[in-house]
Design a protein around this nucleic acid. Structure first.
Length: 585
RNA sequence: GGGGACGUAGUUAAGUUGGUUAUAACGCCGGCCUGUCACGCCGGAGGCCGCGAGUUCAAGUCUCGUCGUCCCCGCCA
């Protein structure tokens, strides 16, 4: 007889003979009757060993301990009145065991499977297979599996083809650091693990698979964070003959199905869109958290004629003066001082606070301001009694960045963030390029294959002003996806390389196969990639990306379960013709 | 590369101004118990206080180093 699933037995099964197989979650030995909770991935069923009904099984039940693997055969019974367990889905029934077979024993566990005590994370990762037996951990990976299926079903229903791209591929100079793999057949040469399937998916467009997707592992050899792992899963897609709106619409459908699968409630689409410039000017970041407002308000124009030294200097230097208004909160002098200290800790030269009481503006600097200026502030910020205003003046980029961080501080400190809401936002119209102080040149803000809004073939002028057909999807202040419409003509792509100061020789050496493909009937195309792990983490309300990855790495990139990375044998190194030396830093 | 937090029985934690034999709960072992479900009751075992130096009459406690885990900055097109 095939075994039944422990969590699926109901009153409808009463009277049936069943075979259950699973792990002994708990045993309760009353001397006479012995109860055991039998667990498999579907749930828990109570099994009963009675000395009267099955003396042999009852005797054998004295042997079983926590996490023993057993198979039992018996009959499903209604529990006696008053002994039902309302907390258990199978609490109406129990299985009277006739035969017990111990399939395997179990040593005492390194930690208990209790819900209330969270063991140290390194122990959990070393014994991940024990950790995963804990119902709340098991649930995450059941949900992850379901989310993968939901996405595949949706994308296939939309006409997408799932096509695999290579893991052993070529290192590219732009972007994150690559993991590299030595080639035995080509001594001295290396593959790189992909940071994303970018070039191959564009090649697939040229090949005519007009809608491609892949749930694909990607690799980046950079330092880890709570939301960053060296290998992670991306939902990658690309479409031909599309514009920004087409990609956005398909993306919203994708997010909708995965959200509704994980959250079990409807998601409103379309999401709002915000220009990159507005995001920077109002929220000081390209990924604003819109679960709360607190936008920056521009005050620079009010102070063009000011006598107040700090503002005067900033205005004459072409800087910006901006304010954030906090309403409906009573702030003590200490709160205000803390806010100033916090801003300085972030790197601000200073932060000025103002408070309106009984129609009058109070502030350490108010004596330096004219009536016109005070009225101007009042109007610009729509001040009411009790409002507190924080003002910063400095170079525009610096004010934006610092006030953006300060806004998040206020949101957290004054509990303005509703933890139960999900605020999706498209940020669009990104700059194509940004200046790198380190490299002393402009680099691609998204990646070098992103197209510009207008042709850049003959571009001359300020490179920082070129806008791209690029878009990011932001959830609660976290970037969960990003993409662009690509260059599909060789001349535009070459123009991009010129702006990036990549000469023709480099371009053809590194991306020659793509450039060649662009000359052989490449259709217009664009796409997007979503951080699948990050989306799961956020939609399940988890703090760490490690919680949604089955076998994650530690912050130093090690796997505590397998012991990777590790040394390899001299024989292996010889085959690869690799000699190791210790390099002193 | 830099800043910070933590490390005590199998596990989770407590451990005071440095001062007797390092506590507790859960788990484990033995015994009892026929309606429990975190079963209950009685008894017991279990410690390189991460590791190594130093200060001190005396270090789980103070100092330095080191290893490990975590958080953050840099980095992550």
């Amino acid at each position: 007889m095939r075994h039944t699933e422990c969590g699926r037995l109901t009153s409808g099964d009463i009277g049936r003979d069943v075979v259950l197989a699973g792990w002994v979650f708990r045993r309760r030995d009353h001397g006479g009757l012995i109860f055991a909770d039998l667990r498999d991935v579907t749930g828990i069923t109570q099994v009963v060993f009675s000395p009267e009904i099955a003396p042999q099984a009852h005797a054998a039940a004295h042997e079983i301990k926590q996490e023993y693997v057993v198979r039992v055969e018996g009959s499903v019974s209604q529990r006696p009145e008053g002994t039902e367990n309302k907390d258990l889905p199978t609490g109406q029934i129990e299985v009277y065991v006739r035969t017990l077979e111990i399939l395997n024993t179990c040593k005492p566990l390194p930690f208990q499977l209790e819900e209330d005590e969270e063991p140290n994370e390194s122990l959990r990762l070393k014994y991940r297979y024990i950790d995963m037996r804990r119902p709340q951990v098991q649930k995450v990976f059941v949900e992850r599996s379901r989310a993968l299926q939901v996405l595949r079903n949706f994308l296939v229903s939309q006409g997408f083809f799932e096509i695999e791209t290579p893991f052993l591929t070529k290192s590219t100079p732009e972007g994150a650091r690559d993991f590299i793999v030595p080639s035995r057949l080509n001594a001295g040469q290396f593959y790189a693990l992909p940071q994303s399937p970018q070039l191959f998916k564009q090649i697939l467009m040229v090949a005519g698979f007009d809608r491609y997707f892949q749930l694909v592992r990607c690799f980046r050899d950079e330092d880890l964070r709570a939301d960053r792992q060296p290998e992670f899963t991306q939902l990658d897609l690309e479409m031909s003959f599309v514009d920004v709106d087409d990609v956005v619409t398909v993306s919203e459908g994708i997010i909708k199905v995965v959200f509704e699968s994980l959250q079990g409630k409807p998601l409103q689409t379309p999401f709002i869109r915000m220009d990159f410039d507005e995001a920077m000017e109002r929220y000081g970041t390209d990924k604003p958290d819109l679960r709360f407002q607190l936008p920056m308000v521009e005050l620079t124009h009010i102070f063009q004629q000011t006598d107040f030294g700090v503002f005067k200097k900033v205005c004459s230097d072409g800087g910006a003066i901006k304010a954030i208004t906090l309403r409906g909160r009573t702030l003590s002098r200490k709160d205000l001082d803390d806010a100033v200290d916090m801003a300085k800790g972030m790197g601000a030269g200073g932060l000025i606070w103002m408070r309106r009481d009984a129609g009058k503006l109070q502030s350490p600097v108010v004596k330096f301001l004219s009536e016109v200026e005070i009225t101007g502030i009042d109007r610009a910020c729509d001040l009411h009694d009790g409002d507190v205003l924080f003002v910063m003046a400095d170079a525009r980029d610096k004010v934006n960045e610092l006030m953006g961080k300060f806004r998040l501080y206020l949101g957290t400190k004054y509990d303005l963030v509703n933890k139960d809401t999900f605020s999706f936002l498209w940020v669009v119209n990104f700059p194509l390029l940004e200046y790198s102080d380190e490299e002393k040149r402009y680099v691609a803000r998204h990646h070098p294959f992103t197209s510009a809004k207008n042709s850049i073939v003959d571009f001359s002028g300020d490179l920082g002003l070129i806008r791209a057909n690029a878009y990011d999807l932001v959830l609660n202040g976290v970037e969960i996806g990003g993409g662009s419409i690509r260059n599909y003509r060789r001349d535009e792509q070459m123009a991009m390389f010129r702006l990036l100061q990549i000469d023709e020789e480099q371009a053809s050496e590194q991306f020659g196969f793509l450039l060649e493909a662009l000359e052989m009937g490449a259709p217009p195309h664009g796409g997007i990639a979503f951080g699948f792990d990050r989306i799961l983490m956020m939609l399940m309300g988890l703090e760490s990306i490690r919680d949604v990855i089955p076998f994650p790495k530690t912050q130093k990139g090690t796997c505590l379960l397998s012991g990777a990375p590790a040394r390899v044998s001299q024989k292996q190194l010889n085959e690869l013709k690799i000699r190791t030396v210790t390099v002193k830093e």
